[in-house]
């Protein structure tokens, strides 16, 4: 009780009225680059600020406000990932059925109509890469949410596969199957919409 009282009486180390102006865009970029979805990113920013308000009396200024808020956002994103892991079963099944046609069931050869064809672009042309990146963003939106979560955790946060498996309750082999399917799916989607 004594501790609580001190916290209430001492002035806050952080002024919530300045958060939006100072950090909203930064946090939004952080969330969006991982989730690639405007609406979800916005929701998580709001959740982050509201959660931070609840905890602000305990913020001691040991880390910067920005680091502290980013930490809260990271937890919100992790919660979001975990929720997706348990609910995207139908979505995953549909995506899996699509992938079944990619290879010959017998010998594992590419089926002709699904086989990779060169995009025919210079990998270093920034304009083309930007355009391709835009198409990729649309493709990412169509991925089963669990797959995007796994892909994003690996690529954007550089987490080990072991850590991701624990977070999302996946087995090691499951993890690699998802990474493979995600890449097959994205590649096919890019090929379909490029040109």
């Amino acid at each position: 009780m004594k501790e609580e009282k001190t916290a209430i009486n001492s002035p806050l180390k952080s002024d919530p009225a300045t958060w939006v102006e100072q950090y909203a865009d930064y946090l939004y970029r952080f969330a969006f680059s991982r989730l690639r979805n405007e609406e979800i990113a916005r929701d998580l920013i709001q959740d982050t600020f509201l959660a931070a308000l609840q905890q602000v009396s305990r913020f001691e200024g040991k880390s910067s406000e920005k680091t502290w808020l980013t930490g809260i956002l990271k937890n919100k994103i992790a919660d979001f990932y975990r929720r997706q892991a348990s609910k995207s079963i139908t979505e995953i099944r549909t995506a899996e059925i699509e992938l079944q046609n990619f290879f010959d069931a017998d010998n594992g050869h590419w089926n002709m109509q699904h086989s990779p064809k060169a995009f025919g672009l210079d990998d270093n042309d920034p304009m083309l890469l930007k355009e391709l990146g835009g198409i990729l963003n649309d493709c990412l939106k169509k991925l089963p949410a669990l797959w995007l979560s796994v892909f994003s955790m690996k690529h954007m946060d550089d987490l080990t596969s072991e850590k991701i498996c624990i977070e999302l309750k996946l087995t090691g082999s499951n993890f690699w199957v998802i990474m493979h399917r995600t890449k097959l799916n994205l590649r096919a989607c890019l090929q379909k919409h490029w040109n």
Partner: peptide
């Protein structure tokens, strides 16, 4: 290329 595009996303 896809991995590069994904991680290199300019926000």
């Amino acid at each position: 290329l896809i991995s590069r595009l994904f991680t290199g996303f300019q926000s």
